[in-house]
Write a protein that binds this DNA or RNA. Structure first.
Lengths: 191, 191
DNA sequence: TTGATTTCTTGATAAATGTCAAGCGTCAAA
DNA sequence: TTTGACGCTTGACATTTATCAAGAAATCAA
């Protein structure tokens, strides 16, 4: 399996022994998904966990009156509906490829095998999820304390490249504003 | 140790064997904290994980221009700065008792012992944190898709009792609005 | 390349929310 | 009982953000 995947496993989960990294990475398959195709449909069970190798996925949900983009998954990030994967509940998000996308993907069954391969796996996994939880705390804080313009600024500083790669309306939605507001903020900042 | 704590351990973590529940609960101490006292100070390391048995804690942060309430912890909920507890990083939140509060509290050192007492502990812990993560997803979604009034309604439906127990300004803050907006929403709904 | 489609921008206006200041009620300490 | 602190409400007004509609720009497919 691939060096880049092994780097993810090492970086995100802190697995250090090469044999173990190899054992985990062998459970992943490199899979491709075409632009517009769905990695996950809301209502279905999430059967796979994936790490994006190249390309982009959009996590969103269709509400009665609008579509809400919850996140855009970029290279190196994981994609799944975590609660659906873990609890076998119906997925709450649609996940769709914004461009042709390659990812390292593992089935739920194989994912659950990792625990028996690596003694401290559930601990490492816990640490990974705590990091995710902490990012969510930060994101909530941004909505409690910042204006739309401030949220734009912070996100742009950390994700500038994304602004050339996806329809801006999706970034607007995931920052909690309309495309028009987003556009006006950009205009204001440009001057 | 106490039946109520054992119920939390059973409910939140899914520990089933009575001996194990007992072993875990014995590591907790019932501790009291007076109204206004701090359970955690931002910048310090979070050394304890606690479950509120009675009373209320407010999780907040002081920014340059205002104080932001991130959460109010009620009976049965856990209190800590999770990332600080897990990674030994400085706490990002202040946690202060809103009223005299009793909680079952465990030190980080004892907490980390649980893994050696119960084989599947890290798995159970993971499931617990995934549930927390999912709640954060929902909360972010509420900020991406709902107005202040809708957030008020949803929160009120699920936490009506809290409205008689804490200064409403704190609820306003944790829902991402000013006390004045909060007050006007209440007036509107009353009519 | 061209036409169709989608996305982005802009203006006008409306609605939601924030800010500031004042006043009122409640509660507890003096 | 009074006084002061605190929290809530209200009004006037400002600012932010959303909505709607139109057109410009970019992208995609034939």
């Amino acid at each position: 399996m691939n060096n880049e995947l092994e780097a993810y496993i090492s970086t995100y989960f802190g697995v250090v022994r090469p044999k173990e990294i190899k054992a985990i990475s062998d459970l992943f398959q490199l899979t491709s998904i075409k632009k517009g195709a769905y990695f996950l449909k809301a209502g279905k069970k999430s059967e796979r966990l994936s790490f994006v190798q190249s390309g982009l996925l959009r996590v969103f949900v269709q509400t009665a009156d609008k579509e809400v983009t919850q996140w855009i998954t970029t290279k190196g990030q994981f994609a799944t509906d975590l609660s659906s994967l873990v609890f076998d509940s119906p997925a709450r998000w649609d996940i769709q490829a914004l461009v042709d996308t390659e990812m390292y993907s593992i089935s739920k069954a194989d994912y659950e095998k990792i625990g028996s391969l690596i003694p401290e796996w559930h601990l490492l996994e816990k640490l990974f999820i705590v990091r995710c939880f902490t990012m969510m705390e930060d994101r909530i804080f941004s909505h409690l304390s910042m204006s739309a313009e401030e949220r734009y600024q912070v996100f742009f500083e950390n994700n500038a490249a994304l602004f050339n790669e996806v329809p801006l309306q999706y970034i607007a939605s995931m920052l909690g504003m309309t495309p028009e507001t987003f556009s006006r903020i950009r205009k204001k900042i440009a001057n």
